[in-house]
Write a protein that binds this DNA or RNA. Structure first.
Lengths: 256, 256
DNA sequence: AAACGCACTTGACCCGGGTCATTGTGGACG
DNA sequence: CGTCCACAATGACCCGGGTCAAGTGCGTTT
């Protein structure tokens, strides 16, 4: 990691615990462990700046990172979230086109770039995994474009909730079955959500309350939403096949 | 290619003419040529349907393809354009998540999938190229999200024009230096443009004329736009560094 | 040359949401 | 226990653009 990164603590790293790596054979994994370090970030800390050329490849172990681009007019747009298991950084080349920040407390493990790329060349399995990872990311970006294309803010929120549901299922501090249906935790503020969905905090607020009034969701707390009608949400998002469920935030859609 | 594809004519293929392949050594290229066929499509023809599992990897030789997703509510959203040199289809796995149609007359060459993947495994250079291609696509998708995030339609149009300019520079039937500045050809209809930019044809029209009234562009013909003030366009699009210029429609941003 | 079709343009109307301002609300801290 | 502060919610206002409906221009047909 570049040194300007307000140096979070750092220590070793057990890759076996990261789902995405458990298919690799242990030789590859051992080689990875050797060039891996773990870093911790507090919410709001910068992980990488736009334009920066990272000397590492990163992998999120816990928490959320957001990728965002600051625009000339001051607008700031989030182009994606990174959650547990997601990788970032550029293999073989180049500068980032967006900044990466911790959206919540987060653990990130990093591989030094040169040895990582060497490994890539020597270990086709690993290169294959990286390639599939990137394909996944591409799919998520496209799904995200579909969500953003929704003309009404409430539709975009609905799409986002669907994504959260499918992504968080199984992670019990983010997704639980309440007595009246599933509940998701929104891990980011209204302001971040607004950036994410291309709108303003006020409209996010209005959107949530519109969905609540329609009976599709229940606002248990600002950051805790009860899902009451999944199908209606999908319709609101304009999603025909709940395909968004696999969208935006991580989750391998295919395996090696 | 799957057989339902209203069979365009097809013949051999000279890969050396496709810019993206000219860095590969001739051995790899010969191997590719052996599994390559060229197909021609008329504007509007379907190249691949959403959900279909292509048995080929494709590469655009001329013209435009558009990737689009039809939504439950009838809306239809374009998630990207493919131009000369761009590749599509999925290596190693999976169904397409969107349909691919010819936006204009187009030539496409295809590689049968199984032998292509075999080549990938045997030829690291090729796999590297494919990986970089996908990374490029990802960047373009993110840039496109930035354009789509622009709240005003005129800003989105401005962003689109920037992309066209940078992408078309050098292709003289699409981009020429007129006496009062560069001129780009818009290769698709207002209706398509509306789908692309997440709006309606009427607003596209109004947007163009707003930019024209501001003096940023001149509408020589509906499909032929004179660029008068590149900087103002960039500002309108909210782009701080003209980064969009390398966006959406193809164009390797990095090389092997 | 007249008629037709298609794509683009223009106008009128109205709703969603951006914007600004104000008012809750809950947690941290003295 | 009260103060402070950040965030969320709500209200008022107005502009952009979605929508529906004509109108225009150009190429093609007969």
């Amino acid at each position: 990691m570049a040194t300007h990164r307000s140096d979070p603590e750092s220590d070793g790293c057990e890759l076996t615990k990261v789902a995405r790596f458990d298919r690799l054979d242990s030789g590859v994994r051992d080689a990875l462990e050797a060039i891996c370090r773990t870093h911790r970030y507090r919410a709001g800390q910068t992980v990488a700046r736009s334009g920066e050329t990272l000397d590492t490849i990163g992998c999120v172990r816990s928490g959320f990172l957001r990728m965002q681009k600051r625009l000339a007019d001051g607008r700031q747009h989030v182009v994606g979230l990174l959650v547990e298991g997601d990788m970032f950084g550029r293999v073989f080349d180049g500068a980032l086109h967006f900044a990466i920040e911790a959206a919540t407390e987060a653990e990130v493990c990093t591989f030094r770039r040169a040895p990582f790329e060497e490994l890539l060349v020597r270990m086709p399995d690993l290169e294959r995994m990286v390639l599939l990872n990137i394909l996944n990311e591409l799919d998520r970006a496209r799904d995200w474009m579909i969500i953003l294309s929704c003309p009404r803010v409430s539709g975009r929120i609905a799409g986002f909730l669907l994504v959260l549901c499918s992504r968080f299922a199984g992670i019990d501090h983010l997704f639980r079955a309440g007595r009246r249906g599933p509940e998701v935790r929104i891990p980011i503020s209204r302001a971040d959500l607004a950036h994410l969905l291309g709108t303003r905090p006020e409209s996010i607020s209005r959107g949530f309350h519109a969905l609540a009034e329609a009976g599709y969701i229940e606002i248990l707390r600002p950051d805790r939403i009860g899902i009451r009608d999944l199908t209606a949400l999908a319709a609101e998002a304009g999603d025909d096949d709940l395909a968004l469920g696999a969208g935006l935030v991580g989750g391998p859609r295919r395996t090696v």
